[in-house]
Nucleic acid binder design. Sequence first.
DNA 1: TAGATTGTTAATCGATTAACAATC
DNA 2: TAGATTGTTAATCGATTAACAATC
Lengths: 220, 220
Amino acid sequence: MGLDSFSKSKRSDEISNAVINRLPKYYRCLRELLNNDILRVSSKELAGLMRTTASQIRQDFNCFGGFGQQGYGYSVKTLYTKIGMILGITDNYSAVIIGAGGIGMILADNPVFTKRGVILRGVFDKLKKYIGKEINSELTVRSIKDLEQFLLTTKIDIAVFVDYELTKSCVDILLRNKIKGIWNFTGHELRDVDDTIPIENMYIEDTLMTLCYQIKQKEE
Amino acid sequence: MGLDSFSKSKRSDEISNAVINRLPKYYRCLRELLNNDILRVSSKELAGLMRTTASQIRQDFNCFGGFGQQGYGYSVKTLYTKIGMILGITDNYSAVIIGAGGIGMILADNPVFTKRGVILRGVFDKLKKYIGKEINSELTVRSIKDLEQFLLTTKIDIAVFVDYELTKSCVDILLRNKIKGIWNFTGHELRDVDDTIPIENMYIEDTLMTLCYQIKQKEE
DNA sequence: TAGATTGTTAATCGATTAACAATC
DNA sequence: TAGATTGTTAATCGATTAACAATC
């Protein structure tokens, strides 16, 4: 069928960040199509949704070997599944959240992890007012003092940093226990962490500032 | 002094997004320096903090006319102030949040607006359980029904979208009342909004997915 | 078969890096 | 003045777009 052409895929570490960063957006657009029961899409149509060019879309997908069929286009379902696989959604990574205040609780009690195939295993804080608080039927906020003990029995892949001070106090423990990635919401550069594991920084404030810049520009 | 060279600045709409998106990071790094009482920095030193090249830094700053002094480097304070001005931090834009659930409340009760010179004027929802809830001494969650009336008396520049359904029901009202920008946390593409005003999309889930991808890569 | 649309190569465009003259 | 470091031009690199042959 030409749709299962994973075999043709090139060495994956050659793929540029520009492409990788577009994959989640493809994933979103394809889900929109699925929700509307659209089963087939051409690069041109998808380009409309993605606000990019058909050329870029074909170029992007070919990094992974090409998922389409000449004269037909792409199967939305196949494409959605393949991109999900590439993104690691089926890999069931596990995570802990460091910091139960602010955005910590929101993230903990949010489908974002489940929806993207990540299993939240624990939430930690040092403040009495948070410790023991129930997040859902399966999770309760634990004391940061118990983190190391916890990591001995539970394999954790991803640390989600919410509270900067707390992060500083336990980043070594987490690295020592071989976490594989960091999702950083602290708003601070994590200068102590060397580049051996991937970090995704969520600088929420930054985007508010670029928005203000753009508004300013429009006005001038 | 060569430090007040705003006059030399080129036509601002020529400046690429790549540069603009780095400005908030410069702003953060410079604040770090200020906090450590470092008053002077060379492009080479700043490159270390920014994890980029000295060349890029000089190139970037020259988009705005150059803020440095040959043989000396850059005044951290001047640089910080200038970049803040470019980003519109001194412009006192006003904002409303649409959606008091989830991240809405967190954003509302968060220094992010104040710190970046944006004044939060209102939070709106349609659910009884939120309406009337106090955010701080100055703000209470209002009914979405009162939004249009509110906009007649209060000039709003930025709409922060948190709840997608709520957004759909009031985006027209906001556009009609001439908001200037959108900060979108709904996780959905805003297809109804044409490109006349700037939008900053916060796709939080996307970054979790790219993080998982990178972890996956490292493992192979 | 003819039409459509991909996969892929080649051309263009833009962003980053290197180099160096200007100057504090 | 000599040393340092910027501002700016030129060279390189990478990403996007265009074009078209392959093929369903």
